[in-house]
Each structure stands twice: as C-alpha cells, then as structure tokens.
C-alpha cells in the first residue's frame, strides 16, 4: 500500500461513510421499501390521485415562482452587497442569513400575521383586491422567504472574485452596460446561479413549517405535497405517506442531476485539454 503523508484518512472516511449510511441512505431505503410494499397498482393509484396531483401542481408552481423571484432579487441583493459600499451594508448582509437562522414555524407565523387581512401588509393589499394569506400567493411568499439566502450566498463569492478588469476590458472594446452584463457577467455567474437556484427550488419543494401557517391548506387549492404526506402519516397510512414522499425524492434527484449537467455545460471552459 502506498504511504500517505496526510494522516487520518481511514478514520475520517470511516466516520463519513457510517454517518452517510445511517443518517442518509438507510432512511431513504426504508422509504423506498415502505413505498414498494404497496405494489405497483396501489402505488400508482396513490401518487396519481387527484388530490396528490393537485398538491404537486401547487407545490411545483409556487416553488417555480418563488425561485424565479429569488433568482432576480437574490442576484440583485448579491450585486448590491458586493459592488457598493453603503451605510448599513453589513447589517443587510447579516439579515440575508435570517431565514436560515429563524425557525420556519416562526417565519410562517410572522408572515401569516403580516399578510392576514388585518395585518400590516395584508390590510392594504386586500383593499387593492389582493389576498395573500391562505392562497397560493402566500405559499410563494413563504417559499421565497425561506430560500432566498441560497441564491445570495452562492452568487456573492463568485461576484466578489470576478475580476473588475473583465468588465473594463469589455468597456474598452465598446460594449454597452447591457451587452457587458449579458455577454460577460451573466455567463460567468451562471454556474453559481444554477447552484443557488437549484438549492432554492429544492428547499421550496420541501418547505413545510413556514408554509402550513400561511397556506390555509385547502385540498386541491393550497395543499402542498409535504403536507399531504404528513396528513397520510397522521392517519397511520405509512405506505401512502411513503409513496407520496418518494415522488418528492425522485423529483429532487432528477433536479439535482439536471442542474449538475447544466452546471458542467456552463463550466466547460474550465476543463483543460
């Protein structure tokens, strides 16, 4: 066996593998087994039931909207934090992490209070005819709130490392601000944006605590998939719960694979020949 200079490989690798097996792989296998105990016909009936499909539609569409919002707003926030020096910048920078630090239930309750018809935001909005709490819009807001830091925190370091000379070079070559942004800055941020967006989307798909308070949880309208799985669990219908959860699991894996492929494509220039 080759001698290594760095010590600790067997121990650290061992701990990592055991941990990964017990905490990640084993539960996932249990989930798959539980779902598989149903048999194909039952499985399909449960995961394709009208109520389940409606919950997928609500969850995915709200998560997409929230992610799109975070893509734009998160990038703007990262841009402002990196590019400009203004009073209170450090406070804003610290606030970005708040959704991570805050218990999601607290976030959910706060958002519900704010956006309820008699709340600070909900009141004025309802006079405009916009209802937020207990609608898909509320779900979107909760998702956007809890997953915002992902985009900011993945884009921020890349933006910080971006050599200002690249933009200066583009300027000397006659590029307009718009063409410099679309041709130089955006392509270089794409891998980070993809990473941030996929994390943000995954978090939105799985978010539970913040949403159930504000969603209203009406089946077919504002019921998210995670809640449906939880309801089945409370009914002691473990296989059905596992079946619904497995759909979310598969969705997460597919998304991870897709974003990895997209990232590799966006980063193909870094591959050396």
């Amino acid at each position: 066996m080759k001698r290594r200079v760095l010590p600790g490989l067997p121990l650290s690798l061992g701990i990592t593998l055991v941990y990964a097996a017990i905490i990640i792989v084993l539960p996932l296998i249990a989930l798959v087994f539980k779902a598989a105990s149903l048999g194909p016909a039952d499985y399909w009936r449960i995961v394709s039931s009208d109520r389940a499909v409606a919950s997928y539609v609500v969850t995915v569409s709200c998560a997409l909207a929230a992610t799109l919002f975070n893509l734009v707003f998160g990038m703007a926030l990262a841009w402002v934090l990196v590019r400009y020096r203004f009073p209170g910048r450090r406070i804003v920078d610290a606030l970005v992490d708040l959704p991570f630090a805050l218990p999601t239930a607290v976030a959910g309750i706060s958002l519900t209070t704010l956006f309820a018809v008699n709340g600070w935001f909900g009141g004025p909005l309802s006079t405009l005819g916009i209802k937020v709490a207990y609608t898909p819009l509320g779900i979107m807001i909760a998702m956007a709130f809890t997953s915002l830091p992902f985009v900011v925190r993945t884009v921020q370091p890349v933006l910080e490392e971006l050599d200002p000379a690249l933009e200066e070079a583009a300027q000397t070559l006659g590029g307009s601000d718009l063409s410099i942004f679309t041709r130089v800055v955006l392509p270089l941020l794409t891998p980070a944006l993809l990473a941030g967006v996929s994390l943000s989307f995954a978090r939105s798909l799985g978010e539970f605590g913040a949403i159930i308070f504000i969603a209203g949880n009406q089946p077919f309208e504002t019921e998210i998939t995670a809640l449906l799985a939880f309801i089945r669990l409370e009914e002691y219908d473990y296989p059905a719960s596992a079946a619904i959860a497995s759909v979310m699991l598969i969705a997460a894996f597919v998304m991870l694979a897709v974003t990895n492929i997209m990232q590799a494509r966006a980063l193909r220039y870094t591959v050396r020949n």
Partner: peptide, 13 residues
C-alpha cells in the same frame, strides 16, 4: 482605445 491589461483580462468563458 485598445487596452491590454496586466493580467490580460481575457473572458474565460
């Protein structure tokens, strides 16, 4: 003007 930067500033992508 044509400007050549110290570290070239080529667009890596």
């Amino acid at each position: 003007v044509g400007f050549v930067f110290q570290h070239y500033a080529l667009f890596p992508h």
